[in-house]
Amino acid sequence: MSAPAPQPAALPVGTTVGALVASGAQCLADAGVSFGHGTTNAHDEAAWLVLWRLGLPLDSDLSDAPGSLKDQPVAPADQALVAALFAERITSRKPAAYLTREAWLQGVPFYVDERAIVPRSFIAELLVDGGVDEFLSDRTQQVLDLCTGNGSLAVLAAMAWPEVQVTGADISPDALAVAQINVARHGLQDRIRLQLSDGLGALPGPWDLILCNPPYVNATSMAALPAEYRAEPELALAGGTDGMDFVRRLFAQAPACMSEGAVMVLEIGNERAHFEAAFAELPVFWLDTSAGEDQVLLVTREALAAYARLTAQ
């Protein structure tokens, strides 16, 4: 029989928001849960869960400063609700975003559930901070977010460039149903269309910009993923033996679907070594993100077309 999941310790009447966060963080740490779906540590995740469960703003001040919510008392009934949420997080090993049905990317809220992976792409930073603008032009009008998942990058692209039309595409009808919720949530139905497609199969373009956060996790890493990641759709993560199966097919299809001067922004996470081994002759630009310069790359249509000719010889 497995041991019962650790739960926040019983706290006396008069327990505060700050005490619940501290208790919850200790519980998460003791249980050995994994993070990476919006938070990176036990304290931040505990704060997220406590504030969400109590209906308080997620950016609430929990410092020791006067006026902070840290010392606000919590009624016993609400303490019990918080404890139940922590117990569910620990026993289910689901990412917190699946429990709250919300994830934030670059300060923008998105609905999410188990039909799509929790949004966390570093491409989002580049959209908000203008990290790819220098590669675009006035001709950039048609933008494709391939492997759109819950539609977060499509929404952020439409927000970043009000003059463009965006298509969000995915092989999963379930993921597209989640994306539709987010397109409607942000009132972008007139500028974002959603398309079911296996790769570029139903997306002839021509596209001026392709954004893609594809399945890229290699087989060895897939086998070692924590339970929180295994709770997500495998289809959105598994990239084959070296993680590059989808990318190979994408690069073969892309030149015919891109306009002259078009570029592709591709996230490959921690797979740079596998990427460079698979595409040694392909010149790319590595883009700077908060995780460094080896997570996201940009490649031009011209480079992809030249690479296709080279490998066909």
Score class of each variant (00 low, 15 high):
Asp129Asn: 15
Ala96Asp: 10
Thr39Gly: 02
Pro162Trp: 13
Arg309Cys: 12
Gln253Val: 04
Phe246Trp: 07
Ala77Trp: 02
Ala42Thr: 11
Leu146Ala: 06
Asp294Leu: 05
Asn41Ser: 12
Leu49Phe: 10
Leu58His: 12
Val21Met: 06
Glu134Gly: 15
Ala19Ser: 09
Asp138Val: 11
Glu102Tyr: 05
Val33Asp: 03
Gln165Ser: 10
Glu276Lys: 12
Ala306Phe: 10
Leu85Tyr: 00
Thr39Tyr: 11
Thr100Gly: 13
Val178Tyr: 02
Met264His: 06
Phe285Arg: 15
Cys212Ile: 07
Glu163Ser: 12
Glu88Lys: 13
Met159Cys: 01
Phe285Trp: 14
Ser152His: 00
Pro109Glu: 07
Leu235Lys: 03
Asp129Met: 11
Ile181Thr: 15
Leu11Phe: 08
Glu102Ser: 13
Ser152Gly: 11
Ser34Cys: 14
Gly239Asp: 05
Gly36Pro: 09
Gln72Asn: 03
Ala175Pro: 00
Val74Trp: 01
Leu211Ser: 02
Glu276Ile: 07
Leu282Trp: 11
Val112Arg: 05
Ala238Ile: 00
Cys257Pro: 02
Leu176Ile: 10
Val217Thr: 07
His186Glu: 10
Ala80Trp: 10
Pro215Gln: 01
Ala96His: 02
Trp207Phe: 11
Ile268Glu: 06
Gln26Ala: 15
Met258Thr: 04
Leu81His: 14
Asp71Gln: 13
Gln295Met: 11
Pro73Val: 05
Leu176Phe: 10
Gln106Tyr: 05
Met258His: 01
Val217His: 10
Val155Glu: 03
Val108Glu: 13
Thr167Pro: 05
Pro8Arg: 09
Asp30Arg: 15
Gly32Val: 09
Ala9Phe: 04
Thr300Ala: 14
Thr16Lys: 07
Gln106Val: 03
Thr148Val: 13
Ala277Ile: 04
Pro12Ile: 06
Val17Trp: 01
Ala3Gly: 09
Cys257Ser: 10
Pro119Met: 14
Asn41Met: 02
Gly292Val: 03
Arg248Val: 04
Tyr98Ile: 04
Asp294Tyr: 00
Val178Lys: 09
Thr39Gln: 05
Gln180His: 12
Ala3Val: 13
Leu200Asn: 08
Leu81Trp: 14
Thr148Tyr: 03
